[in-house]
Simulated assay, not measured.
Amino acid sequence: METLHIYTKTFNELTITELYEVLQLRSEVFVVEQDCVYQDIDGKDQKALHVIGTKNGKIVAYTRLFNTGYYFDEASIGRVVVAKNERKFGYGHDIIKASITAIEKNYKQTVIKISAQQYLIKFYQSHGFKQIGEGYLEDGIPHIAMLLK
């Protein structure tokens, strides 16, 4: 299995090509694959740290991170995505581990909140996240708040 190369950048550090590939990947998965019409380009990317996973020079995994008080009271990970044809390699686990480390390093935070798609509860639990509260619909998709302490 090929190793995922993971790095973190601010919005202003992203190249035009990286930004295009990130938005293309998010659109492929969240809009097309999940058949969900929603505003992915939401004006928040400029405030986020972007965790990018590449394989053979192409972005195949991604998350965006926020410090406390911007998205939630806690630091947060969002827009967790892995290209459909790359999911069998465990890159989701790699990108989440890298995202948790990036929050600890860049924001000095250890409490992380996410809004997880409910079908991924076990995936996030394997990284120490615990379900909090009741499920809810976000853009028509069942979600659950989860916390890592």
Rank of each mutant, 00 (worst) to 15 (best):
S76V: 06
E134F: 05
E134G: 08
S115Q: 11
E74H: 09
V31Y: 00
T68R: 14
F11G: 05
G135F: 05
V22S: 10
K130T: 15
I141A: 12
Y20S: 06
S99E: 01
V37Q: 04
F129M: 06
K97F: 01
L137N: 07
I16A: 06
K149P: 05
V31M: 00
F89N: 13
E21G: 04
G90C: 04
S27W: 00
Y62W: 04
E138I: 09
F72L: 12
G53M: 06
G135N: 07
I144W: 00
I132D: 08
T110D: 05
K105I: 06
I103Y: 08
N67W: 06
A48H: 07
C36A: 10
F129E: 02
Q24P: 00
E18P: 09
L14D: 07
K9H: 06
Q125I: 04
E18C: 00
G78M: 01
K105C: 10
M1C: 06
E33M: 00
K130F: 02
L4P: 08
D45N: 05
I121E: 15
I103N: 10
P142Y: 09
V29W: 00
I114W: 09
T110A: 06
Y38F: 01
V111G: 00
Y119L: 07
A48K: 07
F66W: 05
N12W: 04
I103H: 03
Q24Y: 01
E86F: 15
I52G: 05
L23G: 00
T110M: 03
G140I: 11
I95L: 13
N12K: 10
E18D: 11
Y20I: 00
L148Y: 03
Y71K: 15
K108E: 12
R87K: 13
M146H: 05
E21H: 10
G135P: 12
K105P: 02
I144A: 08
K47L: 14
M146A: 02
T54H: 03
I141P: 07
K105S: 13
T8D: 01
